[in-house]
């Protein structure tokens, strides 16, 4: 049993504005019977760009019907500029929220609205843009990307809840994960880290030179910095250190300890075999 809000139930049992607007000049149709939900939105927009009338027809579950009903209420009397700004989250919010598995019902409303406005502007019916990722529900990469951006989605499950993509045979899950990773990469904030990699390497070199080498060299040994990968400091031992049985102890208890104290507290020293 779904946990619907009273508002969803109320709109479902008493849908507002069901049917078709006579002489509609903006029509948007999305979904199909095979997919399990479909919405036809018809609008009458006056010469000043104000939505005079809005009606819907829905094939779908209670939340699909309620979402469409709520959308028509939001649209009436609004200008098309205002209508363009309505997001799927606005539709869900107007119903006091939707169960997360049902968010795609609100997305359906937003999609139908966009199509209706495009129809009103006389834009040609666009071919589906992008590449189909989910064959079962015919969802493209562009639709998935948009849902991720607008709703801050991070998992395949969330994307299925919002777009249905990945809800059938599940073969596209890897592709969806790639899209999530791609967007995460692009949107990652570029903030200057406290310690850049270049600074880190320079400071490690300095510390080795000033604090570590002199005492190793006293015992006839030495150490060379090979590479720094993240917090892993790769070193090679030289001279007596290379054959000393206690060199592991020296690396951990002396070298690593010093580097952590003077450079960065999370550094880990690893010996590479040359």
């Amino acid at each position: 049993m779904w946990e619907y809000t009273d508002k969803v139930r109320e709109h479902f049992l008493n849908p507002r504005n069901s049917g078709e607007v006579d002489n509609a000049n903006a029509i948007g149709e999305v979904g199909s019977m095979a997919c399990g939900d479909a919405l036809k939105l018809t609008l009458k927009i006056d010469n000043n760009g104000i939505i005079e009338d809005a009606k819907f027809q829905t094939f779908g579950c209670a939340s699909a019907i309620a979402s469409a009903s709520a959308l028509t209420e939001m649209l009436k009397g609004r200008s098309i500029n205002e209508a363009e700004k309505i997001t799927n989250q606005d539709i869900a919010d107007s119903l006091g929220g939707l169960p997360k598995e049902k968010m795609h019902c609100s997305v359906l409303g937003r999609q139908a609205l966009e199509k209706a406005l495009a129809h009103y502007r006389g834009e040609p019916q666009k071919e589906q843009e992008g590449e189909i990722i989910c064959e079962c529900f015919g969802v493209t990469d562009l639709e998935i990307e948009r849902a991720i951006r607008e709703n801050h989605l991070t998992t395949v499950e969330e994307i299925t809840n919002y777009t249905k993509a990945g809800g059938g045979c599940e073969k596209c899950h890897d592709r969806i994960r790639e899209i999530i990773a791609k967007i995460k990469e692009v949107e990652r904030p570029v903030v200057r880290p406290k310690l850049t990699n270049i600074e880190k390497i320079r400071k490690i070199e300095e510390t080795l030179e000033r604090e570590i080498r002199p005492s190793l060299q006293n015992d006839g040994g030495d150490i060379a910095l090979i590479d720094v990968i993240g917090n892993r400091v790769l070193v090679a031992t030289r001279g007596t250190c290379a054959v000393c049985k206690a060199s592991q102890q020296t690396l951990k208890n002396f070298v690593e300890w010093k580097l952590r104290e003077l450079v960065w507290p999370e550094l880990v020293v690893e010996e590479v075999i040359e």
């Binding site: 399990g36 579950c61 809800g167």
Partner: peptide, 21 residues
Amino acid sequence: SACTSGSLQPSHVLRAMGVPF
């Protein structure tokens, strides 16, 4: 129906029987 089960596909029984979606 798909919506009832919480999955997006209708019953596996009806699908196996070839009942159209």
